[in-house]
């Protein structure tokens, strides 16, 4: 009973907030609605006893991806009036994409009613008592090792690409060089002088 109630609560909020993502006028509000949708999708994953996937949704999607979306939205110089002006010209393309999605939905429902698919290479289901996270771990690092390492390489490429695209040395700043500070010896910094009385101090080229 409580499961059914929780499912309908989470599912309704997911669908409603997903609708608000596309209906919100302000892109920042869209991202905030998206975060709500992610949270409730995590709740749905908990209902499926996929706790690790729920944790991933919260940590990776809410914690990192949504923040990245927020930064991207804040970085774009969006003129809202200009954004809405193109609605009519973009309508045919958008309508075509919507029609494709609708056809896919209809085909998917039809395929679902046609019966189950007999996959040739099926992974044997793990025993019911194995926790979700252990089940993932037992497959991901042994059977799907190639995909896992490829994912690591993709992350590496993403990191290098982001650095190449966005990082550039900025002139006019004087960053702290800790290594240089630590290598400095007293002989370079301190000078002992026998100062005669009544004469000015020779600063030796020190800029004040």
């Amino acid at each position: 009973m409580i499961q059914v109630f929780a499912f309908y609560l989470f599912a309704t909020i997911v669908v409603a907030s997903a609708a608000m993502v596309i209906f919100a006028r302000n892109p920042v509000h869209s991202v905030l609605w998206l975060i709500l949708a992610f949270f409730n999708a995590a709740g749905l994953m908990v209902l499926l006893s996929a706790e690790f996937v729920a944790m991933l949704l919260v940590i990776v999607y809410v914690g990192a991806v949504a923040v990245l979306f927020l930064f991207v939205v804040m970085m774009l110089d969006i003129d809202f009036a200009q954004l809405r002006a193109g609605f009519v010209s973009y309508f045919p393309l958008g309508g075509a994409i919507a029609m494709v999605l609708l056809v896919e939905l209809i085909l998917g429902i039809g395929a679902w009613q046609a019966g189950s698919l007999n996959l040739a290479q099926r992974t044997a289901p793990l025993p019911e008592a194995t926790p979700n996270i252990e089940a993932i771990g037992q497959l991901l690092y042994t059977r799907y090792i190639f995909l896992f390492e490829a994912a690591g390489l993709i992350l590496l490429v993403a990191m290098i690409g982001a650095i190449v695209l966005t990082h550039r040395a900025r002139g006019g700043t004087r960053p702290q060089n800790i290594d240089k500070q630590n290598r400095r010896r007293p002989e370079e910094a301190v000078r002992n002088v026998n100062q005669p009385v009544g004469q000015g101090v020779d600063l030796g080229g020190v800029e004040l």
């Binding site: 940590i59 990776v60 990192a64 923040v67 990245l68 930064f71 970085m75 993403a158 982001a162 966005t166």
Partner: peptide, 17 residues
């Protein structure tokens, strides 16, 4: 407009996350 450097910070965070 935000500085593009925030994007680099965010993407590095995603990867190590």
């Amino acid at each position: 407009q935000f500085d593009v450097r925030f994007y680099l910070v965010a993407i590095l965070f995603i990867i190590f996350d």
